[in-house]
Design a protein around this nucleic acid. Structure first.
Lengths: 149, 149
DNA sequence: GCATAAAGTAAAGCCCGCTTAACTAAAAAG
DNA sequence: CTTTTTAGTTAAGCGGGCTTTACTTTATGC
């Protein structure tokens, strides 16, 4: 078996294990919040990409402006995000996470991270060094991939 | 920084990169199929766990029997799964992927694997050996985690 | 300045997926 | 053999989320 095929296969095997676990945990968590996936992904977006206007939201989420407006309305009602007028363009709104929204996102991330932590406990220190090195390589490679797009 | 904290942090960093990429790709793919997430997850379940009856479906999916029945009905209509009477218990049904359903699942998995393959291209052979070794450790550790539950 | 474009909202309507409740058919229990 | 339980379906109804259309308000182009 060639080197590159071997890498590919290892990555695929790991992906299968990983996806299965994390997807299940994730959708379970989102369910407990009472929010829809869409709603939660708006929160995640605000967390990772920072505050933005309505238009960014509907473009990135591939939904209509009206849909985005209604989505946001609910999140504002639930006190999870804040919607303020943009001082530079009074038509536009600035959306940002409220304290409560930020906490919820943090909690979700924590949730996702939990089994990573459990996993770490099943790895010996010697193996750990190897794993750390390998993951750094992977994260770097993933970054290079993004640049190329 | 202690060894175990370092492992944890590397795992978390990788998870963030990985989840972001794969979730986005996945939901995009599912959208192209025209199926809902629920519907697709039934297909995935049949793929990974093999044929099963209706009751397994609603228990595993945390939905009512009625919901499962309707879900399955649509998938049968779309010719993605097959529903046959269980010869041993004529009340029960055996659900299995149709040829078309299996192809769709394969396609979805292929889709998920694609960027793993691109990633492999950004890794040198020397790094690759390290990565392969590390991923094997991780898959094994994940397996041990499952056993403990 | 006036027409046009852009940002967002409101309302009406549609489709989807879920739930409950009632039902059929078969198996198990007694 | 009758009763009860189990597997699954059907139908009615609700709510969510989306779209379209119409509208308001603000900015931009000529």
């Amino acid at each position: 078996m060639s080197k590159s095929v071997q890498i590919t296969q290892s990555l695929r095997a790991w992906m299968d294990v990983f996806m299965h676990r994390s997807m299940r945990g994730w959708s379970r968590f989102v369910k407990t919040t009472g929010l829809s996936m869409q709603q939660f992904s708006v929160l995640m977006q605000l967390h990772y990409k920072g505050p933005c206007g309505m238009s960014e939201l509907n473009e990135r989420g591939h939904i209509s402006a009206a849909a985005a407006s209604q989505l946001v309305e609910k999140l504002v009602q639930s006190d999870l995000i804040e919607r303020e007028e943009d001082p530079n363009d009074r038509r536009a709104k600035q959306l940002s996470l409220s304290r409560k929204g930020a906490q919820l996102v943090e909690q979700g991330i924590e949730e996702r991270h939990r089994w990573m932590d459990d996993l770490a406990l099943n790895i010996s220190p010697e193996e750990g060094a190897l794993v750390v090195e390998a993951l750094e390589i992977l994260v770097r490679a993933a970054g290079q991939l993004d640049e190329k797009i």
